[in-house]
Design a binder for these strands. Structure first.
Lengths: 176, 176
DNA sequence: TAGTGCATGTAATGCGTTACATGATTTC
DNA sequence: GAAATCATGTAACGCATTACATGCACTA
């Protein structure tokens, strides 16, 4: 079975219930996009491909005259999702621009370099607020969906504290 | 000035001292690749582009008959790096496959889903070991290079603990 | 009736990785 | 003398994003 970056998201979201391509994009933008984005240009072709492979089944479900096609996971699709979940990890790729900046902080006067740390801290704090807002309106999400949201909040909380600690440490070592 | 993903790494690494394209790739693979990768296919064309723009200067420094070209940052290049360091953040894109798996953990029987968390924990532990090994042989790195390494170790330490805590919490809630 | 949201889809573009080619030098 | 490392470079490929096109339905 062919795998691209979008395959597991589509399969995974459909495991939570039937969705249209548009729905999938909407849900992605409200949830996984924080650690796994997907665009229309990937989603629609992928849905057709998965249907050809028998992993999902599409059904026309128009709203009045407006077309709409809803997909649901087949048994084979659920199996494929589980195989992926239990299989070996393939993609290990992070891109953290703020960390890259920090890494080159020595190219800046000390005060401005510390500003980079301060900015990172604020980034964490803002992120935490966004996630808290999502958390507040989150109803009864499945356990592991909830777990990942919790991770996001805990991580950003930790990250903000870490920056603060280092800021203090570096300010002291500068004074020394 | 044109910016691609590889621009800041090249400029940044050259700010620490003159390097060849090959050197840059080697250093990247030992340091930034954890949060910012780069390939030969990006590095070599980028060096020429940056030279055309006057941000770096290349000098032939062959070893015997074997060609070698070493680049150093110009004043304009240092300025460009600083501008980037202080400018607005552009790329915010994470890909965390392990988190994506966790997110869809509900599609698995409970025990196997908890295995996903356990696997993530082990991932953090292994990563931590790798970084500790780097830390041990790290000599006198610049402050902020050091800071980022420290971040990596602290983050993975935190991550492993977090997984452990959640594992305990979920095991209890299951028993309830 | 104008604007927003629903809904599907594709073409162009840009970019990064992979794989390959070439050859010198060092090390075992 | 074979293997690993140094060193540069490019072409092909795959993939994801962006932008665009189209049109219905609801609501202020």
């Amino acid at each position: 079975m062919k795998q691209t970056a979008v395959t597991p998201v589509v399969l995974g979201l459909l495991s939570l219930g039937p969705l249209s391509g548009y729905d999938i994009k909407t849900v992605v933008d409200r949830s996984t996009r924080f650690f796994w984005a997907a665009s229309y240009g990937q989603i629609y072709p992928e849905l057709r491909r998965l249907e050809d492979e028998g992993l999902v089944e599409g059904e026309d479900a128009p709203n009045g005259r407006r077309g709409r096609r809803v997909y649901r996971l087949t048994e084979a699709g659920r199996k494929a999702l589980q195989d992926w979940l239990l299989g070996p990890e393939t993609t290990i790729e992070y891109r953290d621009e703020s960390l890259l900046r920090l890494f080159f902080g020595d190219a800046l006067p000390r005060e401005q370099a510390l500003g980079l740390l301060e900015a990172r801290k604020q980034g964490h704090e803002q992120y935490l607020e966004i996630l808290r807002a999502i958390d507040a309106r989150a109803g009864q999400d499945p356990d592991f969906v909830d777990l990942v949201l919790r991770w996001g909040m805990d991580f950003n909380d930790w990250g903000a504290r870490w920056c603060e600690e280092q800021l203090e440490r570096l300010r002291v070592s500068k004074a020394a």
